[in-house]
Each structure stands twice: as structure tokens, then as C-alpha cells.
Amino acid sequence: MSSVRLTDGRVLHLPGAPFVLNSHSIIMAPADAALAALVPLIPADDLLLFTGWLVTGARKRRRQPRYAEVNAARLRLARLCIDRALTDWPEVQA
């Protein structure tokens, strides 16, 4: 599980607990809009570290069909974090 403390003090866990399962016991991922809304809440100092955790988590479970949807969501969230880190680069370097 990947997690990061948000700027407002909450902790973001992906996938969130308790797991939401569909009828085939596949773990359902959060909606893209929910992921995009969380990216600005991640502290700039933690963006690249959190991105690494997301990619590592997806890599570890890449052959597990149960995690297929969550892995795709993790990689989309990682991409959003990288995009934000690139736009906020001076803030990330400080």
C-alpha cells in the first residue's frame, strides 16, 4: 500500500481501506477525478518519493489480476504527481 501525509494532516492510502471489491473480487480503484483532486494536497517535498512508492507498488503486483485496476490508477496518479513536480520544480528543489 502506498501512503502519504497530505498538507491538511490527512493520510492518503492507495488503495484505500477497506478495499472496495466488485463481483469478481477485483479491487476497485478510486475515480480519476478523486485522484486528480488529491494531487494538489500532496506536499511538494513528497511528490517524487510518493511517485516512487506508487510505481513500486504497481510493479510488485503487476501479475495479480485482482490489482489490475488499482495498478492502473497508481500509475495515473504517479503521472499526475510527476507533472505537478515538473511545474513546481523550484519549490521541489528547495
Rank of each mutant, 00 (worst) to 15 (best):
D46G: 09
P40Q: 05
A37N: 03
I26C: 11
V70M: 10
A58Y: 02
L35E: 06
A58S: 14
N71A: 04
A29D: 02
A31I: 00
S25Q: 11
V20A: 14
W53C: 05
T56C: 03
L80H: 06
L49G: 14
A73L: 01
P43C: 07
D32V: 09
S25C: 13
P18V: 00
R63Y: 12
A78G: 00
V20N: 10
I42K: 00
W53T: 07
T51L: 09
M28P: 03
A68S: 05
V70K: 08
Q64M: 11
L21H: 08
T51Q: 12
L75V: 07
R63C: 10
A37Q: 08
A36H: 03
R76V: 04
Q64S: 13
L54V: 04
T56A: 12
P18L: 03
I42C: 08
A34T: 14
R62E: 08
F50K: 01
L38C: 15
A17S: 11
A68G: 01
P18A: 02
A17V: 08
R63F: 14
Y67E: 13
T56S: 09
L75S: 02
Y67S: 07
L41S: 13
V20F: 10
P18K: 01
A68W: 00
L54G: 06
S25W: 12
P40T: 05
E69T: 13
A34N: 10
N22Q: 02
S23Y: 06
G57L: 01
W53D: 12
A68H: 05
A33R: 03
D32H: 09
R79E: 10
